[in-house]
Every structure is written in structure tokens, then in C-alpha cells.
Design a binder for these strands. Structure first.
Lengths: 163, 163
DNA sequence: TGTGAAAGCCTTTAACG
DNA sequence: CGTTAAAGGCTTTCACA
């Protein structure tokens, strides 16, 4: 991966409907090499997928809840079961194993507090959890799927050659 | 929005490279009406954008940090400034105003703890914050841009008519 | 690796039930 | 609102530098 791949990724992270020819123009390439690069980035799994991002307002999932979970069952078995349970819920859009005093953190999207309560009841009915604490977001000020590309490790461009 | 729009959204949330004809087939429509529906969903802003999702591993942003922020400057001015500062950082991918004892919650993506420390220093150099506490994720178990569509409010399908 | 052009597929429009 | 079919554009491939 080099500077041009990075430019391509930057563009496609913003808008994946861009035509290959347009991407090519913007990065200063003609279509075929640009197409080949995009292809390669997909094969290598750098580009994982292309998706439509929906407006949460319009689909009635405007409330974000962060749920901190503590457990005493630190077994592999419990985590496996917990994982499976969580994956089943489409309301859970993010799920992290944490360091520190909280064991797991999940982000849940729902229309309102009542729906969160229903979700919560369904969750604790399915698996035993020592301690759950919920924090409600009043407002989502920023949300993006664009990752910073500043940390990308680029191949040394010692000259014009590459692998 | 009706049941068919919902199906279309479900498909495009998963994979926006699907050809209109394929979407049409899957929802049991022919291409033109399906195309018109997708067009409308975009115009109405239900579909906000189409983006490429990158693999965090490959672009060296595998570490997620959740930063809880408390402030005593509860003024509109302070929030405006804070917002602007945060938006500037590509490492901040989510930003919420919270209820409860934490005022703001942000998710930061970086390659490692050292990079987080550098980010942290840049942040506090730019704006005064009363209290910052960082929680590191050891593992991202689930991350999806797919929102649950179960809460969507559908038009009453009393018969076959619509607006 | 890059260029330019040809082939084929998809999107988009139009004409019509 | 649905269908079928034609037009135009984009992706993808190929031959070549």
C-alpha cells in the first residue's frame, strides 16, 4: 500500500458510489490501474464491504444507550454464550471487551427508553449478568465510519518499483 | 415506507454493491419500481450515504478507547468550541452528549496506547476539560453499521393504495 | 505499472398498462 | 404503482507500451 492507495481509500470511505474513472481522475491515475488497485484492496480485505448508511431518525433508532457490564463468570464458556446472545440482538451495534473495572461495553440503539427497557429485560432473561449499568446519550454529536488513515503503514517508496 | 422499502433497506445495509435488478428480484419487484423506491429513499434521506468500510487491522487503528469527559463549563460557548475541536480529530469516530454523571463520551481509534497518549495530549492542549477518564477496549467483538429495522414506522397498508 | 479502446453489464429513462 | 424495452454510462477486460 502506498500513497495512492491511501488516497483511494480516503475517497471510498467518504463515498463509495464514486465511479472508478472519477476516483482515478482525483488521484491522478487512469481507470485501469485505479481499478486494479481497488480490486486488490478488496481482495486483501482492506476494503471489507460497501454498505448503505441509514439515517437513525428516519428508521426510529435515535436513542443510543451505552451499557457497561460486569460479570464474575470470567470463564471462556460464559463469554462464548454471552457473545452469542449479544450477536442475536440487532439493537446491539457495538460490543467490546474492556480492560479496567467494566468487563464489557455495548452500544444499543432503540427508539426510546421504553424500548430500551424491553431490550434489557430480554437480555437479562437470556443470560446471567452480575452488574449492568446503562448510560443514555442525549445527542449524537458525531458519528462516522471513516477511520483515520494517518496511521497506515505505507511501503517504502525508495524508488518507483513495488512488489 | 412499507414492507418492501424495509426489505430494500435491509439488503443495502448489508451490501450496497447489489445491482438494482438483484435487489428487485430479492424483494419480488421488477427493476424500475425498485429503482424508484431506492431513489426516493435517498431523496428522503433515509439512505444517507454509501461508504466503504475498511478493516481496522489493515489500516492500523485496532485500538478502541472510550473517553468519558466531565466538565464544569456547561455553557453553550464551551460546547461549541469543544465540538469544533473534536470534529477536527479523525481519531474520534463517535461523540455523544450523555445524561448521568459523565457529560460526554467519545470513541477514539488509534494504533496503540502511545498513539492514544499523543492524541490525549493534543486534545487537552486545545481545550480545558475538568475530568477525563479513558477506558481501553481489549477486543472489538461486534461492530456493525446495520441498524435494527424492527422499529421502523410503516405506513398502514389498509389496502393496496399509497400516497 | 501505465495507456487506450472494445465488450458487456447496469443504471436510468421513456412509453405504456 | 407496475411492466417491458431502449439509451447511455460505467465497469471490466484485453492488447500493448
Amino acid at each position: 500500500m502506498d500513497r495512492l492507495d491511501k488516497k483511494i481509500l480516503r475517497l471510498l470511505q467518504e463515498d463509495s458510489t464514486l465511479a472508478v474513472a472519477d476516483v482515478a481522475k482525483k488521484v491522478g491515475l487512469s481507470t485501469t490501474p485505479c481499478w486494479r488497485r481497488i480490486q486488490k484492496l478488496e481482495e486483501e480485505g482492506v476494503i471489507q464491504r460497501r454498505v448503505a448508511i441509514l439515517n437513525p431518525q428516519k428508521i426510529n433508532t435515535r436513542v443510543n444507550v451505552f451499557v457497561s457490564i460486569r460479570t464474575n463468570a470470567h470463564s471462556h464458556e460464559w463469554l462464548k454464550r454471552f457473545s452469542e446472545v449479544i450477536q442475536e440482538f440487532p439493537e446491539v451495534v457495538e460490543f467490546y471487551r474492556m480492560s479496567g473495572d467494566v468487563d464489557y461495553l455495548i452500544r444499543v440503539v432503540v427508539p426510546d427508553i421504553a424500548a430500551y427497557d424491553a431490550f434489557y429485560k430480554k437480555l437479562i432473561a437470556k443470560i446471567e449478568i452480575r452488574d449492568v449499568s446503562s448510560a443514555f446519550a442525549m445527542e449524537q454529536i458525531k458519528y462516522t465510519t471513516e477511520m483515520p488513515l494517518d496511521y497506515m503503514v505505507l511501503d517504502k517508496e525508495t524508488n518507483s518499483s513495488a512488489a
